[in-house]
Structure formats: C-alpha cells, structure tokens
Design a protein around this nucleic acid. Sequence first.
DNA 1: CTCAAGCATAAGTGAGGCTTGGAGCCCGGG
DNA 2: CCCGGGCTCCAAGCCTCACTTATGCTTGAG
Lengths: 322, 322
Amino acid sequence: MIEARHLRVLRAVAATGSFSAAARELGCTQPAVSQQMKALEQSTGTPLLIRTGREMRLTQAGDALVRHAAGILAGLTAAEEEVAAIAGLRAGRVRLVSFPSGSSTLVPAALAALRAAHPGTRVSLVEAEPPRSVEMLREGDCDVALAFRYEGRRDASQKKGGGGRREGEGATADDWDDLVVRPLLADRLVGLIPENHRLSGDDAVSIAEFADESWIAGCPRCRRQLVDVCESAGFVPRIDFATDDYPAVIGLVGAGLGVAVLPELALESVRPKGARTVTVEPAVHREIVALTLPDLARVPTVAATLDQLAAAADRLSAAAAH
Amino acid sequence: MIEARHLRVLRAVAATGSFSAAARELGCTQPAVSQQMKALEQSTGTPLLIRTGREMRLTQAGDALVRHAAGILAGLTAAEEEVAAIAGLRAGRVRLVSFPSGSSTLVPAALAALRAAHPGTRVSLVEAEPPRSVEMLREGDCDVALAFRYEGRRDASQKKGGGGRREGEGATADDWDDLVVRPLLADRLVGLIPENHRLSGDDAVSIAEFADESWIAGCPRCRRQLVDVCESAGFVPRIDFATDDYPAVIGLVGAGLGVAVLPELALESVRPKGARTVTVEPAVHREIVALTLPDLARVPTVAATLDQLAAAADRLSAAAAH
DNA sequence: CTCAAGCATAAGTGAGGCTTGGAGCCCGGG
DNA sequence: CCCGGGCTCCAAGCCTCACTTATGCTTGAG
C-alpha cells in the first residue's frame, strides 16, 4: 500500500535532487526523509532512487511513481480544498424545508442574511407541513426543517409508555427527542374577524364569544389545535371552510364568511383586506422551531443556517414589539 | 493531511452503508473503522457521516470526499501496478551500452533470451568503447555497460596512492571499485595473419616472430595492450593501420597488408576471408564484464539483463569449447 | 590534507492504530 | 411483553511506526 505521504516526500526528493534539500522543503529532518524513502522502496519492492556520489537519480520505477504522484497529490489537495470550502462556508448546499407561513417570512430574511454572510453557500427550499417535514428530515431528504408546535404539546412523546400516537401514521414523526430543536420565536394566535363584525370594536375577545360563529380553519394541526382550545372553552367550533392557504383564509374572513384563529406570523406578509385582528382569550401560542439531526447540526452550513434563522427570528420579534 | 487509507475506509463505508460491513470488507474490526472515520472527520474538520439510527448517510463534505476518493485511489492503484509491472519484469526498459564486438555476439543472444523470458521488457542498445561507456554509466546515461579489461590490469586502481592515472582525462573512468562487476567470459587474443603468410602453417606462434611485421591495430585500449605485450617481448610493433572496426581489420589482414592480434570474440560473427588465426605466445586474455551501479544492480530489469548476459556468455564459451 | 555537505544508521521517545471487552440502542421474533 | 441479534460507541492495553537527536562514513572542494 503506497502512502500519499511517501509520494509527497518522493516528489520533493526528485525535485530537489537531495534528501537534505527535500527535508528542508518539507520541514523535517534528513533522517526522516531517508527513512521514508527506504520505507517506500520496501513497500514497492524495487529501488526507486540511485545514490551516485554527487546526485540523486530516479530509477524507472521511481520516475513512474513521481509521474503518478502529480495526479494523486493534486487529487488529494483538490479534495481537501473542496471539503475545506464546505467546512469554511465558502461552498455547500443546505436543503431546507419549511411550512408555508414560515417560508414567506422567516426563511427569506434568513436566507438573505446567510447569502450576505457566506456567499457561495446555496440553499434549496421545499415546502412541507411539520409531520411530513420531520419525516423528510429523518429520511435524509432535507437538512433543516422549520416546524412548529403548540404549547402544552411539547412533551407529546414521553419515552414510550403514555398515550402518544394520535395518528396511526406518524409513529414518531411528532417525537423530537432525537432531534436538535432550535427555538426560533413564539408565535401568538390571533383572531381574525370581518371588519363589520359585531365584536370588531373590541381589542381582546374571549374565544367563547365565537361559539356560534362560522369558522375558517387552517392546516390539519392548526385545526386540531383550534378544536382543542374551543373544547376547553366549552363548545365545538363549526368549521365551514378548511384550507392550508392562509391568504385564502384571510380572504374568506375579509369576505365576511366567518372568523378564524391564525398565527400572527401568517399575517406578517399579508395585508388583510376587510378583516381585522383581535386578541383572543385564552392566549394561545405556537412555537416555531428549526429542526435538524444531531450530526447535521455540526455541519457548518447547517449550523450557519440555523444561526441565521434564529437571527431572523429575533429581528422579526423585535420589530413586532413596536 | 488526508490519508489514502482513510479514503479507502470511507469509500467502503459509503458503499456498504455500515461500519461493520465495511470492517468485514476491509478485513479489520469495526472499532478500527469507527476510529478511522473519527480521525478523518477530525482532520477535515467537518462531519462526513451522519449516523441516523438505521442507516449511515454521507454529508455533502463526505460525498465530495468519496467522489474524489475514486480518482485518488484509482491513481494509487495505477501507480502501484505500474511499479509492480516494472518490478515484476512485465515492463521496463534497460539501457545497455556495449563495445562493438560485444554487441554483435553476446548482446543479441542475451536480449533474445531476455525477451523470451520476460516479454514486456525493452532494451535500448548504444555502442561505446569502455572508457566512454563507464562514464555514461556513472552519469546515468545507461544502466548496464559491457566492457572489457586485459589481465594484469585488474587492479588498475589501488585505492588512491600508487601510480594510477594513465590518461589525464578518465580520472576514475577505469576505476571500477565502486561498480558492480559481473564477469561474463574470458576472451582470448588470437593472432590473425594472411593465409599466404610464412607462418600460416603453424598453430602457435611466439609474438616475437612478428617483430618486423606491419601491424593492424584495433581500438585504443587494444592498441595499448598490444604495445605492452610487444614491449615485453622486446620490440615495438610497427602499427600501420588502426581502426575500431574489427571487420575492417580482418579485411586488411586478409588483403595481406599486415598481421593483427584481436579478441576471439571479434571473430565470432565474422568469417575471415584470406586470413587465418594462430595462437600467439604468450597467451593474452581479456575479460569481458558487465558493469552497473550498485543501486541499479538491485533493479529487477537490470538484474535480469545481467543474468541473461551471463547466461549467453556461458553458452558462448560452452560452444567454443567444442 | 582539511573542511563542509550529504547520506546512513542507531537508540530513544512519543503518538497513533488495532484489538479486546463491555455498555447502550434499536429492531424483529417468540 | 420479553429477549436475542446486530450495530455503534467507549475504554483500556498493547504494539507498531515515525520522528528526533547523535554519530559515523563517504564524497567533493579548497
């Protein structure tokens, strides 16, 4: 087995014509060079150098080895440089998956900052709702997943014993114990009602006030959360419309077809027309997090993406504070 | 510094998808694989593998490394194979230099046998007389030199003290102490005289009988030897012609222009016309040897060439015995 | 002849790799 | 529900290997 280190020394010897000069060039002592050449000759089983008094000449085998060494060492340094570029954030692609309202607010800000901080890095973005996005993460189809969870459901999975398993499908898709969970921001749920609604003058409204309203619900998880909260308030919401598309929800409310409860973030990039927001009691929050695999969290591009997501989230919540 | 050994292991891990399987493939234990991958990740400074419960996946950096590994390892094995081919006599060129009468007899037989024994090896042949051929050997312009020396001149160089230095030029060109000297055969000097010469009836003639003859001499070294021998016999030869070309010498003798003393080997491949050989007294021999550098003697192609030269010389002298 | 330079060798030291043995984890079968 | 098999990581011990310093030898130049 020829070692690359030996080839490097051999090349230096061939270039300088002497062991001592090669040693100086390589930054080691002359016996080290002498020993390495001896080892290389032993491993190849044939003399590579002929020591003739004055000069050091190559045998044919040595010449062949030096000839190959160029390509091999070039390949090695190319590999090192490419890996270093990825590790040094001068290259590399991170595959991000996000849910819709995240990809329209947090993600653009984060990716713009990432590109500014590390030109050369590339991000591919795919949209998927949390159960599916976590699945993609686990299957290696993405590197970072933006997801959210509603408060009180943090410990949706207690090891194995308890209740768990709300949907037969997900199995452990909602179990994030084995993932790196990076909290980004706490998103508040707000009520959205038509401007001409009877309660549109109030700033804060108990959710029980909406017991008899027609509801427009969002994605499955949000709908489930809505039903839970309403049940706690003592009624079952009458859901007339359900859509993943938040702009559509806002449009429906603006058209006076019902009321909705939706995350503040979903309103960030949309200007509701014909609708206004009200604070609902009890206050409900969802936590937006970035997820990744433990090993991936140590990959520089992934770590940088997480950092930029967190920074964007900070900026976002700071802006909302005003 | 990325080591080729690590790349080999990484490639096995990527191919098999597990450390244990890679270890089995590589013939080592699993912790060895685990440690090597850890070392590789540390030397590159970035994670290369992500261990996700079931399967082992590559990070982008790991993928880049595996991609480069193919070329690097291919280059390494190509280098190993080329060197092995040279070492195993399946390839390689040996540069041979010989004096004329050697290259017409010994050399063809030896090279034919070499090619038969080791197809793939190539030999390049250049003609040069001994002082120059030894110089070429020392300067790296050839690998094996066929040369000859006259008896009594074996120790032409006693370390440094004595007389030495016959020609100011050669300096150490006649000093073979630092060379590998492989004796091939002892070549006897024979007299060559015209068929109508007064002594052509004799089988053995004292050289003193030729004191008044016209002489035709060969190469400078042979001429010098001739002069020495004649001086010992008490006369100075009258040299009317001198040429390196033995066939020309033979032709001149055949034409009755004089007598000559020349090595038997020079007559091996020439049928003298109009001349016949006689044994001269005192008997003079020259020793034909193959020379090479000590380091070169360990090169397989060179060693094989020396062996075939020796074998050819044995066949030649065995044939001459009849 | 003396001096400088270069290579080879020997001995000592240190790092690093490999192995064995054990623990934790996940999966599938009884 | 438990349990065996397979996988990985961790720790400890051993051993090999590479580098260093120090020394001797040879060669070429002044």
